[in-house]
């Protein structure tokens, strides 16, 4: 069963009508982790924000549907959406210093979610907040309720963010680069925490990341984005062992590894919206592009069971 279904999502710049995200479709199966992978500017974060209906001003959803619990989120009233957001669908961001309010204590901020989404009174909410902080592994949770975000380290702040996300008893957790701002030893702790919470609460997770190591650690399914489109989607093991799209293959080849002698970098860079090539959006950097690729956009098709690719010349690698 899929808990979240995004179909043919389009996001445009409101003024210039330049497309930023186009025809993005994916399903998030219940209890699974789907990773959206790509480099900056590919539209992965915007896709996450669109699900929460939190797109920044100047961008708008111009088409598509986002189904959650038999409802199209895009058709909910602002009031109904507020109840979903932070409740059944929660989100954590890259930089917990920016996402936490610096003038309120950690306890107040978590209690607010509990009062809003679970109708608890202040005292009960604070007790529950303490339990949540303990659950996410924050040392001395009772004392931390009175701490302000600046008094905590980056890792602790991210734990607070996760506690706050759990406060609404979510079914879906959208984690946008949850460990990118953290040191690698702290990242390992947060990844282990996310993995255990997902099991314990039967969460379905949409993980947004540029880091293939993080993706390989947490994901059941991986969707690769490039220039506002999905270019490949497959079960995690299959995507890493049998990447079919030239961009996915390039992403794996450019990773510096101790055993590699040299890298085979792609030329150029990700084109910004408005400067994307006609035809296949990867055609200008693709090592195996043919004439057809510059003229027509390849369709999004299931070439093997559960393995989707947007490429005319899928080679069986």
């Amino acid at each position: 069963m899929n808990i979240l279904e995004v179909s043919a999502l389009n996001i445009f710049y409101s003024k210039s009508r330049i497309p930023v995200v186009e025809e993005v479709s994916f399903f998030l199966p219940a209890g699974k982790t789907l990773a959206l992978v790509g480099e900056s500017g590919c539209g992965k974060s915007l896709t996450g924000l669109a699900i929460m209906r939190l797109l920044p001003t100047g961008l708008e959803i111009t088409g598509g549907q986002i189904h959650f619990e038999n409802k199209n989120l895009l058709e909910l009233s602002p009031e109904e959406m507020r109840r979903v957001r932070g409740g059944k669908i929660a989100m954590i961001f890259q930089d917990p210093m920016v996402s936490l309010n610096p003038v309120f204590t950690v306890g107040t901020q978590i209690a607010e979610v509990l009062e809003l989404h679970r109708g608890l009174g202040r005292q009960k909410a604070l007790a529950e907040a303490e339990r949540l902080l303990a659950e996410v592994g924050l040392p001395a949770p009772k004392a931390r309720l009175k701490a302000y975000p600046h008094e905590l380290s980056g890792g602790m702040r991210q734990r607070v963010m996760i506690a706050m996300a759990l406060a609404g008893n979510p079914k879906v957790l959208i984690a946008d680069e949850p460990t990118t701002a953290l040191d690698v030893t702290i990242q390992a702790q947060i990844l282990a925490l996310l993995a255990s919470l997902k099991e314990k609460h039967n969460l379905s997770v949409l993980l947004i990341s540029h880091d293939l190591g993080v993706v390989a650690t947490l994901a059941d399914l991986v969707a690769v984005m490039y220039a506002g489109r999905l270019v490949e989607k497959a079960p995690c093991e299959e995507l890493f062992s049998k990447p079919l799209h030239p961009y996915t293959r390039a992403l794996l080849e450019v990773l510096p590894r101790p055993e590699k002698k040299s890298l085979k970098p792609l030329p150029g860079q990700v084109p910004p919206p408005g400067a994307r090539p006609a035809g296949c959006k990867f055609s200008d950097r693709c090592p195996s592009a043919q004439k057809k690729c510059f003229e027509k956009e390849p369709p999004w098709q299931e070439v093997f069971p559960r393995h989707w690719v947007r490429c005319f010349y899928v080679s069986d690698a």
């Binding site: 690698v184 030893t185 702790q189 282990a192 190591g213 650690t217 994901a219 890493f240 990773l255």
Partner: peptide
């Protein structure tokens, strides 16, 4: 050793969730 264990491998077959202790 802690650093080496902490680095996530870009390979789902080498998936690991190490127990890493504390913060600096």
């Amino acid at each position: 050793k802690m650093l080496l264990e902490s680095v996530p491998e870009p390979d789902p077959y080498k998936r690991k969730l190490p127990k890493v202790k504390g913060e600096p």
